[in-house]
Design a binder for these strands. Structure first.
Lengths: 179, 179
DNA sequence: CAAAACCGACCGACTGGACGGTATGGTAGC
DNA sequence: GCTACCATACCGTCCAGTCGGTCGGTTTTG
């Protein structure tokens, strides 16, 4: 038959948040979205928190994979680690909105769920600072990409904004000749 | 005697979000926080959405006031408008966390509530772009401050972080000689 | 002037629905 | 027949919003 699987449930949950808002991310809604009964859903995730956590992990993993791809394509110059992270931020903005949506839902539900993300953020910043001669500028560029990311999360910037692509290129260019 | 008033209710609501999280922003909780019955609370704000909206408006007004103060103190050079906005972002980070908290609560409840903020953001960006020779860089600096702001909102950056002050000064310096 | 009528602020019990989670039973594949 | 997967029914709780009513003050009126 249909074969559901946790990934599809996570996608469904993201879809629910995108359509109805974080507050409406309810177990019934997720179940309905992926054509499952609530019982079936709760078989895969025994609690709502578990689902939230899985959503975050999934999104974080996608970000990591995206950065890794970039690193594989471009060698490892001085600003490459930074560029990879900036690139992955933009990818998350364009491809889908899974991470941001999950973020909002999670932080509304229970801020403690963000702990793994906090740790990852710290690692990334350390890695970037170590790979570059001007760590402050590097962090500012990273924060700029984060800022654009959140602007999109909150719908403050349209994806079709003409500025968007130019700012992205400008950021990557500044990352490239940071040394 | 006690005199309640809408402002105090808004403060109480922010306090609830700060202490218990956006999900726990309930009418009962707000009422309890400001020593009021739910009936009394609903007398001032006839619906929860109305309260959320007032919270956002209040926070936005505070941001605007902060930027205006900065403009009054520093003349109006080329990068001053930008610096004012960056400065107000950092003020919001340090003084309290009312705007971010309200933001999260509102966006979780109903993303449509963000519309006024979206409009203001657009105005600010236009104003800054018009006041400077390199609008892209200006926007990137603005986004960097936004990025740090959100990092703090989500607890991704500690307030005591030694980097914090240096990044702030670096940002303001870059804003100062943008022309 | 004083009583009556009115008004805004506030209270607190109540309701109806939403939502997370449980309990139980059914079914398909190994 | 055991396990993984899924459905149905149900429970307890939480919460936004309603409603009738109290109380102190102000305005109207006889």
């Amino acid at each position: 038959m249909s074969k559901v699987g946790k990934d599809e449930i996570i996608r469904a949950a993201e879809e629910v948040v995108r359509e109805k808002g974080a507050r409406k991310l309810t177990l019934d809604a997720v179940a309905a979205q992926c054509g499952l009964s609530k019982g079936g859903l709760l078989h895969h995730f025994r609690t709502k928190q578990a689902l939230l956590q899985a959503m975050l992990e999934s999104a974080v993993a996608r970000e990591g994979g995206c950065a890794a791809d970039y690193l594989a394509r471009a060698g490892d110059g001085p600003g490459t680690a930074l560029a990879a992270r900036i690139h992955s931020m933009f990818s998350l903005m364009q491809d889908d909105e899974s991470l941001p949506r999950s973020l909002i839902a999670a932080v509304a539900e229970d801020p403690a769920l963000l702990e793994p993300i906090r740790e990852k953020e710290e690692r990334v910043r350390r890695e970037i600072c170590a790979s570059v001669k001007d760590p402050e500028l590097a962090q500012l560029l990273l924060f700029a990409s984060r800022g654009m990311f959140f602007a999109r999360v909150f719908g403050l910037m349209e994806p079709g904004d003409p500025q968007f692509e130019r700012l992205r290129e400008r950021l990557l260019a500044m990352a490239a000749d940071i040394d």
